[in-house]
Design a protein around this nucleic acid. Structure first.
Lengths: 321, 321
DNA sequence: AATTACTGTTCCATATTTGGAACAATATTG
DNA sequence: CAATATTGTTCCAAATATGGAACAGTAATT
């Protein structure tokens, strides 16, 4: 005879905790003693064990007012109850373990450029300070969904910090500017105004919106937004930089990435009196009361070290560009 | 740093069932699916898992409206939760096993004489009919405390069935009478009235009350109780019978035990017109809604077979004695 | 023998938990 | 692209479990 509803051997028991309590009662030799160590009223204990027996249809303990006697079934039953307790303790232990000190894996996502410039210089110090933490670095320029990608922390560069259900921590400003090669300027002339660039070949990162535009602001406050059609689109900023240096067109890049090329005379800044929006490098992570120590210390470490690391790299400064 | 109160690594968890429910949620891939198979509202499931996470201070699952993602901790945690479920199922299985059909051990206590005469003739048939049942036969003439002696069924012979918290099932009447040897009567004369026995040597079973008395009833209704001081006290009825046959005195014995000796002329009945109280052979067992099949079938078997077995042994008949 | 201390169970006003409906968010379908 | 279906979470009246006190029974002590 088959019962469809019971095919996957479901547990009839209403409350598995009763098994643990039963084991405690047996191990302490009495309801009262068990109740004291469990810090549960003995009336509750008595009722729950009685309920359990009724539920199972079997007597587990025979009781005198002074002594308990395990039935044969109770004795066999007990072994499995003790396994339940041990497994529950092991489960709890897992959670204690990762909360005791920073340990375990932290997944952090970051745009390519940030990863390759800032993070690589910061990470070694972190990994040395927290030897039990593993970092899983996901590099992508696409906006990541923290939950779906199972990412603990995401680094982002945006003109403004969007509010969402995530916690955002500001790190450092990240200035961008238009660059091209000196030779390119010799060919096309030096632009005085954004509109002078309207027909110039351009390069860009990929934007999934499909809208390619520069938003300029003059020092005296005037601002203008112009669309452009890039001839080369790639998320690899190193490629963009190289292409610009090889006279392929104008490109918007983080200032700090171009400092070396400028010193070498391979790139020059275009329209230096017009500013592009200064992006904010920040990180986001889901709010959780129980943020794991490993994640917490990485957050703290980034907040602590990012400004100086960015300073060394000249992230925010565009004074001499 | 030590916490006295936590020395015996108590479980912080309030409800172990949550571990099983967490495992179900993961295994079914969603709260809704798990709620359906567990037949629990999803609101309850959602709240309980959230409570569990709060209790542990750790995130186990990251949730989208459409998909669940185990955290690293959750993944390790899960293994132990599955162990909890398996152990709980095993525990439950133990109780199902003994309820499925008659199996396991049954402890029955019985007075020596009953054991040696009636039970030995009944047991083989029972053991054959129920091959998975083991019988643990405790022979004693002392009154047993069913719980302390861990006895499932006790056979007793008493003048009347005492009421107690136990269930009593009447089996057969068990008549006793006074016996002695023909030679003894020749020496002491044939008594006509109980008082004629006042100085006669007597034999008896042990009574822990210390009160040794015979209660006679005449056929016409007269009754008399007389005390006596036994010269031999033993619980071994075979010894008493032998002692009486060897002219040591008068003894009260179950009629059926003496039939053979009477036929052989080794014993005769004393005061045949006076009756001793007819004892009731009955059994007692604790009331339990969930009496195990093994115990139940032994009870039923005794009720079924005892009368005929007693008939063969002539337990109740004293017509020819 | 009487007293004391402790057992497991029962009782019932109180505190907690439950679960159906409403909700916000996301896939799937028409 | 709107409509539908299904997800996990929240809310709060209603159902349930709790736990201190009273109880009945037993062992040790006086």
């Amino acid at each position: 005879m088959f019962y469809e509803g019971k095919a996957q051997r479901g547990l009839d028991m209403k409350d598995i905790t009763n098994l643990a309590w039963f084991a405690h009662v047996v191990e302490h030799g009495s309801f009262s003693a068990a109740a004291r160590t469990l810090r549960v009223p003995k009336s509750t204990l008595s009722r729950r064990i009685a309920d359990l027996e009724e539920e199972l249809g079997v007597r587990l303990l025979n009781r005198t007012t002074r002594k308990l006697y395990l039935t044969d079934v109770g004795r066999e039953f007990l072994v499995h109850c003790q396994t339940v307790v041990a497994a529950a303790e092991a489960a709890e232990q897992v959670t204690h373990f990762v909360q005791e000190k920073p340990r375990g894996k932290v997944r952090i996502s970051s745009p390519y450029a940030i990863s390759q410039s800032l993070l690589v210089s910061i990470m070694p110090g972190f990994l040395k300070r927290y030897p039990d933490v593993q970092i899983d670095l996901v590099m992508t320029n696409k906006p990541v969904n923290l939950i779906e990608e199972q990412v603990d922390i995401a680094l982002r560069v945006r003109p403004t910090i969007e509010d969402s259900s995530l916690i955002a921590r500001d790190l450092v400003p990240s200035a961008s500017a238009l660059f091209t090669s000196p030779e390119f300027l010799q060919t096309h002339g030096v632009p005085e105004h954004p509109l002078d660039l309207s027909d110039w070949p351009s390069l860009s990162m990929h934007y999934s919106s499909g809208r390619y535009q520069w938003s300029f602001t003059a020092q005296h406050g005037e601002s203008i937004t112009m669309n452009y059609q890039p001839r080369l689109i790639t998320d690899d900023l190193w490629v963009l930089r190289e292409a610009a240096a090889e006279h392929q067109g104008v490109v918007s890049l983080p200032v700090y990435l171009c400092r070396e090329y400028i010193d070498q005379g391979r790139l020059v800044r275009v329209l230096p009196s017009w500013r592009l929006p200064v992006g904010k490098l920040h990180m986001v992570y889901p709010y959780r009361r129980g943020l794991l120590p490993a994640v917490r210390v990485l957050i703290d470490y980034l907040v602590e070290c990012m400004p100086s690391a960015a300073g060394v790299a000249g992230l925010a400064t565009d004074s001499d560009a």
